[in-house]
């Protein structure tokens, strides 16, 4: 978790979760039950972006189950490409992709993290596909 401190830890620590617990809010948003996880690691082993992740997908689940809100600081949830490989292969039928989205939504809906387009350097801005911006703005709207 120390690798990425891009987000404002103070803001994360101030979040008041629905029903008082991170896991309950994740469950409500994703519709998935995280406690059924056997920690087998299938999701992580199949994830195409796992090399760049600070927390592996199965560790993200473990953090949520243990009610550790630092998971919201993780780069992993933003690196998730929603390819559904994890969800497809999970023996416990847990849709990890949806859980990742739920974690992103917790942050986005509280407007803790948003992208200021103007702060992106021009050079970079020109290489980013337009579609990415559209998705980004949609997410920011909530």
């Amino acid at each position: 978790m120390t690798k990425n401190q891009a987000l404002n830890t103070r803001e994360i620590s101030k979040i008041v979760f629905k029903k008082g617990e991170l896991v309950k809010e994740v469950e409500e948003l994703s519709g998935e039950n995280l406690f059924g996880c056997y920690q087998c690691g299938t999701c992580s082993a199949g994830c195409p972006f796992v090399e760049d992740m600070d927390l592996l997908p199965d560790e993200v689940i473990r953090y949520v189950v243990l009610d550790r809100r630092e998971v919201l600081n993780s780069k992993t949830i933003w690196l998730c490409a929603s390819c559904y490989t994890c969800a497809e292969r999970c023996p416990r039928d847990i849709n990890i992709t949806k859980i990742m989205e739920a974690l992103r939504q917790i942050i986005l809906r509280r407007k803790i993290d948003y992208t200021d387009v103007l702060k992106i350097p021009k050079k970079e801005r020109e290489t980013i596909p337009q579609l990415a911006f559209v998705s980004l703005f949609r997410k920011n709207i909530g």
Partner: peptide, 28 residues
């Protein structure tokens, strides 16, 4: 090894590559 492999690929010499996470060491 504690870890459930995600997938298996065949190599040219017909050997197989197993991709998994060792959940006890955290390594993929």
């Amino acid at each position: 090894v504690r870890g459930r492999p995600s997938s298996v690929y065949e190599n040219k010499d017909k050997s197989l590559t197993i991709r998994y996470k060792n959940t006890l060491t955290g390594e993929i």
